[in-house]
């Protein structure tokens, strides 16, 4: 679909051209989350208030890590029992998207991951081993997070105020799998932990 100057269905403001490659954007003017569905736009609630915090990641500023580089284009903030973390949607040099989760220097970069087993939330308990695609992972964290705020664009619809159950699984050679359960479905992503001291960005200070 070509970009033909779409407008926010709530306030009429121009939406960014990046909507052509995203599923969802947050309107910069009226704080509405706008979802693109079958070439039609609909609002998906408020985008929430994003309190500004020190971060290595800033929307629109490229970051480099070892031989890779990513451009963060969307930022979602989730709260959990004792704090909150940011989930950035970023695109790499080849246009592929990654999720970057950032929680006080604990940074993981993950890509969408297809799992070949049927899972039940009830079997995913902390400390349990789970076989995914022939590999054994251990559940290291299980919690529920609530979306607090959205900014930028995302490959899927997110809703401020919605709760998501999630699990972190640790696998061989430091591999990480995150499972997310929402509206009766699992979504999985797989990736690695990232050393923040090796990140190079305008905000890295190193």
């Amino acid at each position: 679909m070509g970009f033909d100057g779409m407008n926010c269905p709530n306030c009429g403001a121009d939406l960014p051209e990046t909507l052509t490659r995203a599923k969802m954007v947050a309107c910069r003017y009226c704080e509405s989350a706008v979802v693109l569905e079958d070439d039609a736009l609909r609002t998906a609630g408020e985008k929430g208030v994003m309190a500004e915090e020190p971060s290595l990641f800033v929307l629109g500023r490229e970051i480099r890590y070892r031989r890779e580089s990513w451009l963060p284009v969307g930022q979602a903030r989730f709260s959990y029992g004792t704090g909150w973390w940011d989930e950035f949607w970023a695109v790499d040099g080849g246009g592929e998207g990654v999720w970057i989760s950032v929680d006080e220097g604990e940074i993981a970069v993950e890509r969408p991951y297809e799992i070949d087993v049927t899972l039940s939330p009830w079997q995913l308990k902390r400390g349990e081993n789970v076989s995914l695609n022939g590999e054994t992972f251990t559940v290291t964290e299980a919690d529920t997070a609530t979306c607090m705020a959205l900014r930028g664009e995302f490959p899927e619809a997110l809703h401020v105020g919605q709760a998501y159950r999630y699990w972190h699984l640790s696998g061989p050679m430091g591999r990480l799998v995150t499972l997310e359960f929402s509206e009766g479905e699992f979504a999985a992503s797989e990736g690695v932990w990232v050393d923040p001291y090796l990140i190079r960005s305008e905000n890295a200070g190193a």
């Binding site: 910069r28 009226c30 704080e31 985008k47 309190a51 500004e52 020190p54 705020a149 900014r151």
Partner: peptide, 10 residues
């Protein structure tokens, strides 16, 4: 109106 974020809470 600018992008909707606020300073960090104290």
């Amino acid at each position: 109106m600018t992008d909707g974020f606020s300073p960090a809470p104290s």
